[in-house]
């Protein structure tokens, strides 16, 4: 079953064309990794899917519903999609528990006690139960990012978008976030992740999409894209990554 379907997506900032007729389909339980150079539109695509950016052309469907129809209430769509940002974006004036329970209580109408129990269970699963009453600035980057992922997950989203979730982390903290995402994959969470971690994309993704020139230039199973890329641009990109020691 197709969860997400992007068709001919175009996004322009000023005179810069970031997405130029991009097509992408994501099936249920599938994990898709978006790779590509900085500025290739990975983050922009995720922001478009979450309706944080307006399209300049094309359509996006979520579970068959046309969500880029201007008559659709974006708040209702965002309730079904979770997104995690590179800079965590936790609410600094709320404790970890308040961060996690805000949406369930205020948006989804979950009773407060139930929401707290559910949040504590999730935090326990990712080893952060003892941080429930701490403020975000007392947490390490890796812990903050795990809280941000939990904050998105408690709402049981149909689709989880991960935008460079390890790019702001110290190298020794990357592992804890990646292992959490690996667990989510085994839970069957449908995910689209923009990443610079090629090794991780190779391990966790069912499919890797290489973005170039505002389109998906090449896609396939990770072993195929990484080992025998068909396109010259993909080979060029991957060789630069290897030079930088990131593969």
């Amino acid at each position: 079953m197709t969860v997400l379907s992007c068709h001919g997506v175009r996004k322009v900032f000023g005179d810069q064309v970031v997405l130029d007729g991009l097509d992408l389909d994501v099936s249920e339980h599938e994990v898709v990794a978006l790779i590509g150079a900085s500025g290739s539109g990975k983050s922009t695509l995720l922001r478009c899917v979450n309706l944080l950016e307006e399209l300049d052309d094309g359509t996006i469907h979520l579970d068959g519903e046309h969500i880029t129809d201007p008559r659709v209430d974006p708040d209702k769509v965002r309730q079904r999609i979770g997104i995690v940002f590179q800079a965590y974006n936790l609410f600094p004036h709320m404790t970890v528990l308040e961060n996690v329970t805000l949406a369930p209580v205020r948006v989804h109408g979950v009773p407060r006690t139930a929401a707290r129990a559910q949040a504590l269970e999730w935090l326990g699963r990712v080893g952060l139960a003892d941080k429930a009453y701490a403020y975000p600035d007392r947490l390490s980057g890796g812990q903050q990012q795990r809280v941000a992922i939990v904050r998105a997950l408690v709402n049981s989203p149909r689709l989880l978008l991960l935008d460079e979730v390890t790019s702001a982390l110290d190298p020794e903290l990357v592992g804890e976030v990646l292992s959490m995402i690996r667990d989510l994959k085994s839970d069957g969470v449908t995910m689209v992740l923009a990443t610079h971690e090629m090794g991780f994309a190779r391990q966790v993704a069912d499919r890797v999409c290489f973005l170039d020139g505002g389109r998906v230039l090449e896609q396939g199973p990770p072993e195929q894209v990484f080992a025998e890329p068909a396109e010259a641009r993909t080979r060029q990109f991957l060789s630069r990554i290897i030079e930088a020691g990131r593969l």
């Binding site: 944080l52 708040d75 974006n89």
Partner: peptide
């Protein structure tokens, strides 16, 4: 980015103002 985080959770503009 705080607004983006709040809106992406499905909070309305008013809720975002009030809680975040």
């Amino acid at each position: 980015s705080q607004l983006a985080a709040a809106r992406s959770l499905g909070l309305t503009y008013r809720q975002t103002m009030r809680f975040v």
